[in-house]
């Protein structure tokens, strides 16, 4: 099978871009759902890295892909809890805006 050579730097750069994109979104978007989605983006940046290293790292092996699978599972659990909390919050506050989470402060 002919190998397609992709320089590892470009994959890592993709990871950095995804991470920063997710971070920027998580810190600026007003809707909690979008914020949660952006957090997923950050996790996926890590996944990209893991998979990239699994193939192109210093000593390539399958551990990275296994790690990525675990991460995806865990992230799914996390987002499920997140959405459940959002639902509970919406019931009480009639809002899904981040800025309305302002009961606990100072």
């Amino acid at each position: 099978m002919p190998t397609l050579s992709i320089p590892p730097q470009s994959l890592l750069t993709l990871g950095v871009i995804l991470f920063c994109l997710g971070l920027f979104g998580a810190l600026t978007r007003r809707n909690i759902i979008i914020v949660l989605v952006c957090v997923e983006l950050m996790l996926n940046a890590a996944n990209i890295n893991l998979v990239a290293f699994s193939r192109l790292g210093a000593s390539p092996n399958l551990d990275g892909q296994v790690f990525a699978l675990f991460t995806i599972t865990v992230a799914a659990a996390e987002i499920a809890v997140g959405l459940a909390l959002l639902l509970a919050f919406f019931r009480l506050r009639q809002s899904s805006e981040v800025k309305d989470m302002n009961q606990n402060k100072l």
Partner: peptide
């Protein structure tokens, strides 16, 4: 909810760090 969002950002950061450790050590 606040704990969840901050905690997830933290997890993502941690995982991102782990990915580099894995990358260089394999």
């Amino acid at each position: 909810a606040k704990y969840l969002v901050m905690g997830s950002i933290g997890s993502a950061t941690l995982l991102y760090g782990f990915s580099f450790i894995y990358g260089i050590s394999g």
